[in-house]
Amino acid sequence: MIRTAVPAEAEDVVALHARARATYYPDGIPQDGTDWLASWRSAIERPDGHVLCVVEEGRIIGLASFRTPKDAPRDTVKLFQFHVDPDHWRSGVGTALHAACVEEWRADGKRTAVLDVHVDNRRAQGFYARQGWVPDPENPPAEGDHHLFLRFSVNGE
């Protein structure tokens, strides 16, 4: 089942986030001082954002967080976080979650979606390419940056 996350699930969301991110940081997730529990609770509670989750047998196994950034056109949405439990990779969970995101974006009148993905996260890059995401021509990678910027046409244009 895919549904909106609720604040009481923030700890479960953080745990999934950590499991997924750990797979592309070979030396462990950098400790940058971010309070992930507060960040996810804020994302879930934001009136201008949305966090979708995939729930299977009462457990969150996928999640996506998105909203329109303040500095972006109104018809653009940014996918800030997209994670699937590593035990469920290649099972269709990510594809179903992505489709649910696109459905919401279309319903909200979005035309373009953007995201950034860590350069070492080749698995995610392949997933996004299969969904139709392409390098963002307006945001080429900067020298030394650890992220690639991708763009998606919500209406397939």
Rank of each mutant, 00 (worst) to 15 (best):
H147Q: 14
S65D: 15
T23W: 00
L37C: 02
P141V: 14
A20M: 02
A10I: 07
C53D: 05
A43M: 13
G109V: 11
G156V: 00
R3G: 05
D108L: 13
N139L: 15
P140F: 09
A96V: 02
D85H: 06
Q31V: 11
A113D: 04
L115R: 07
H147M: 12
A18I: 07
A107T: 03
N121V: 03
Y25A: 05
V114N: 04
W89C: 01
R3S: 11
H98Y: 12
V119L: 09
F149V: 00
L79N: 02
Q131G: 05
H50T: 10
A18V: 13
R19S: 00
E103C: 06
G28E: 12
F80A: 07
G126W: 05
E104N: 04
C101V: 09
Q81F: 13
L150Q: 07
Q125S: 10
Q81Y: 09
L148V: 08
T23N: 06
F66E: 06
G28M: 10
F82L: 02
A113F: 03
G144C: 11
R3V: 03
A124S: 02
G94M: 04
R21H: 03
L16S: 05
I61C: 14
Y25P: 08
F66N: 04
Q81N: 09
V54A: 14
A18N: 10
D85N: 00
L52M: 00
A72N: 02
V14R: 03
A18S: 02
K70M: 12
D85R: 05
K78R: 12
R123W: 09
F149D: 03
T23G: 08
R111N: 12
R111C: 07
A142F: 08
C101A: 00
D32I: 07
L63G: 08
E157H: 10
F127G: 07
E157T: 11
D71G: 04
K110N: 11
Q31I: 06
W40K: 01
